[in-house]
Simulated scan of single mutants.
Amino acid sequence: MIVCHCTQISDHEIVAAIKWMRAADPETIITPGKIYHALGKRADCGGCMPLFLDTMRHCASLEVAPPILRAKTDRQKGIPDEGRRKGHRIS
């Protein structure tokens, strides 16, 4: 499944990058930026980030997740958002 349409990154590529980084250094903290760098690509619009993070969460090789992946979203906590639309893009 294509996760990032801008850079054509699939879920299989994300999982392979996580496994590769984990094999190279078991103690490393894996972030989306490191995955983009490992794949030789750069984030473009940021619209894929929720799906990108969800794909990372479901990878068994991730093991130690950084706080951004462990934390619940503000909506799940009942805290109102900042008024952004759901389709908000990072420029």
Score class of each variant (00 low, 15 high):
residue 42 R to N: 12
residue 48 C to I: 01
residue 34 K to W: 06
residue 26 P to I: 06
residue 9 I to D: 04
residue 4 C to F: 00
residue 46 G to A: 03
residue 78 G to Q: 13
residue 51 L to C: 07
residue 9 I to G: 03
residue 82 E to G: 08
residue 46 G to I: 00
residue 11 D to W: 05
residue 26 P to M: 05
residue 84 R to K: 09
residue 50 P to T: 07
residue 55 T to V: 08
residue 9 I to C: 01
residue 52 F to H: 04
residue 51 L to P: 00
residue 46 G to Q: 01
residue 27 E to F: 09
residue 37 H to S: 14
residue 80 P to D: 08
residue 52 F to C: 04
residue 90 I to A: 11
residue 61 S to R: 00
residue 42 R to Q: 12
residue 8 Q to V: 12
residue 62 L to I: 07
residue 41 K to E: 06
residue 7 T to V: 15
residue 9 I to Y: 02
residue 70 R to L: 14
residue 84 R to W: 06
residue 13 E to T: 04
residue 85 R to S: 12
residue 12 H to M: 14
residue 5 H to F: 08
residue 88 H to Q: 07
residue 8 Q to K: 15
residue 70 R to V: 09
residue 30 I to S: 01
residue 89 R to P: 07
residue 67 P to H: 11
residue 12 H to D: 15
residue 80 P to K: 13
residue 25 D to I: 04
residue 55 T to I: 02
residue 14 I to G: 00
residue 67 P to I: 08
residue 74 D to C: 15
residue 32 P to Q: 04
residue 84 R to T: 03
residue 3 V to H: 03
residue 81 D to W: 07
residue 15 V to M: 02
residue 56 M to S: 05
residue 33 G to H: 04
residue 26 P to C: 05
residue 51 L to Y: 13
residue 19 K to T: 03
residue 3 V to P: 02
residue 76 Q to L: 09
residue 81 D to A: 06
residue 50 P to F: 09
residue 30 I to F: 01
residue 30 I to Y: 00
residue 17 A to M: 04
residue 90 I to N: 10
residue 10 S to N: 05
residue 64 V to E: 14
residue 36 Y to M: 05
residue 61 S to N: 05
residue 65 A to G: 07
residue 52 F to Y: 07
residue 26 P to R: 10
residue 33 G to A: 05
residue 56 M to G: 05
residue 61 S to M: 04
residue 28 T to V: 13
residue 36 Y to A: 01
residue 82 E to F: 10
residue 77 K to L: 14
residue 77 K to S: 09
residue 76 Q to A: 10
residue 43 A to H: 06
residue 25 D to E: 12
residue 89 R to G: 08
residue 89 R to C: 12
residue 38 A to G: 08
residue 31 T to H: 06
residue 56 M to N: 04
residue 42 R to D: 12
residue 33 G to K: 05
residue 58 H to V: 00
residue 22 R to F: 01
residue 4 C to Q: 03
residue 41 K to Y: 03
residue 25 D to N: 15
residue 51 L to F: 10
residue 78 G to L: 11
residue 16 A to Q: 13
residue 35 I to E: 02
residue 33 G to N: 05
residue 12 H to F: 14
residue 52 F to W: 07
residue 33 G to F: 02
residue 58 H to L: 01
residue 14 I to F: 00
residue 28 T to G: 05
residue 31 T to C: 04
residue 87 G to D: 15
residue 53 L to W: 12
residue 18 I to P: 00
residue 54 D to H: 12
residue 73 T to C: 08
residue 36 Y to P: 03
residue 15 V to D: 05
residue 89 R to M: 13
residue 7 T to C: 12
residue 75 R to D: 11
residue 72 K to A: 10
residue 62 L to C: 05
residue 10 S to E: 06
residue 18 I to N: 00
residue 21 M to Q: 12
residue 50 P to C: 07
residue 89 R to Q: 13
residue 4 C to E: 03
residue 79 I to C: 07
residue 7 T to W: 04
residue 78 G to V: 12
